[in-house]
Design a protein around this nucleic acid. Structure first.
Length: 324
DNA sequence: CATCAGGGCCCTG
DNA sequence: CAGGGCCCTGAT
């Protein structure tokens, strides 16, 4: 058991997101499998962050409401945070958590939409955040592949226990993602021992690319959807399903929805048409026609609302589909 | 006990 | 472009 690194220095600032901003709906996604890097509890969200070659702890507290949002952010660090670093970190978080994105047009446009009406009443101001870097997200999408959630969690825990950095802040312990070059040095056999199976090869290759700085995440953000897809699909172990996750989640492209995997197809069929299984083309055309450039944001709202309802009161058919 | 599909992707023919 | 193989696990 390695000892946790204490992140004793802290610095708090207030963030005023662009309204409408739904804190809970944005900051925490109950549809995601749990990792030891984050925790959500009634208006407070903790997360670790490896950034600028350093480990940080983040604490977000909701101090406002959807129409006049205020978020208190506390950054925990090993060394005292310089003004420069604070600026870079908050800039990055601004992108990852979409604090300044204006989605009022979407909320206004679909407030009477049959499918979204209730969802928007509950979750108005929900947007698509991704707390992780591109490298970290790639790892997550790779361990999701061809596995049930239980197995994904097992792979994730094995990776964090073996390669993650344990930190302690705000009296809580979490793991921080490892560095890409650290994982690059690990043998494929070792990764297979950790039950990663054939994904070990993809993880090795991705870690190698990132340790060689072959990707510039900031530059990738500037690309069009098509250009971005072309870049991402070249990554070993990344196919159409993962590219689509990357586009909407990591790169926040609200219009990126042209792929539906089998398990999602079942869920869409149920919530859109109340059917066992609709053709995926039918689902895609329907969402495209109805929501246009907001189709992925709309789909995300529908999905996340569903998982929130499930979290609060078990939905039997969904329980069956997600199969822990 | 064996067989199979799962929150895909790569490679081959 | 279709289809087999891939790691491991729980379900059947």
């Amino acid at each position: 058991m390695s000892l946790a690194i204490g992140l004793a220095n802290k610095k708090s600032i207030m963030i005023t997101p662009t309204p409408p901003f739904n804190f809970e709906g944005t900051i925490y996604n109950p549809g995601h499998f749990p990792t030891p890097t984050e925790k959500y509890e009634d208006g407070i969200f903790w997360q670790t962050m490896r950034f600028l070659n350093e480990e940080f702890g983040l604490k977000f507290e909701n101090e406002g409401a959807t129409n006049n949002p205020e978020v208190k952010l506390t950054i925990y660090s090993k060394n005292k945070l310089t003004k420069e670093k604070l600026k870079i970190i908050t800039g990055e978080l601004n992108y990852r958590f979409e604090f300044n994105r204006d989605i009022s047009e979407f909320c206004e446009k679909f407030k009477n939409d049959k499918l979204l009406e209730l969802v928007l009443r509950r979750w108005k101001g929900m947007r698509i955040k991704c707390g992780y870097s591109l490298y970290e997200s790639l790892i997550i999408y790779i361990i999701l592949q061809n596995a049930t959630v239980r197995r994904t969690v097992q792979m994730s825990n094995n990776l964090f226990e073996n390669f993650g950095t344990k930190v302690k802040f705000d009296n809580k312990e979490f793991h921080v993602f490892w560095k890409s070059d650290q994982l690059n040095k690990v043998s494929e056999d070792k990764l297979r021992e950790l039950k990663l199976g054939y994904r070990a090869k993809s993880i090795k290759k991705v870690s190698e690319s990132f340790s060689k700085n072959e990707f510039n995440e900031i530059e990738l953000r500037k690309l069009s959807n098509e250009e971005l897809k072309k870049e991402l699909i070249q990554i070993y172990g990344i196919g159409p399903a993962s590219v689509w996750y990357l586009l909407f989640e990591v790169f926040h492209r609200y219009d990126a929805l042209d792929y539906i995997s089998p398990w999602e197809q079942k869920i869409y069929s149920k919530i859109l048409f109340d059917k066992e299984l609709a053709e995926s083309k039918k689902i895609l055309d329907f969402l495209n026609q109805k929501y246009g450039k907001y189709k992925m944001l709309a789909a995300h709202c529908l999905f996340t609302d569903l998982f929130w309802r499930h979290k609060k009161k078990k939905i039997n058919w969904l329980e069956k589909e997600i199969r822990l």
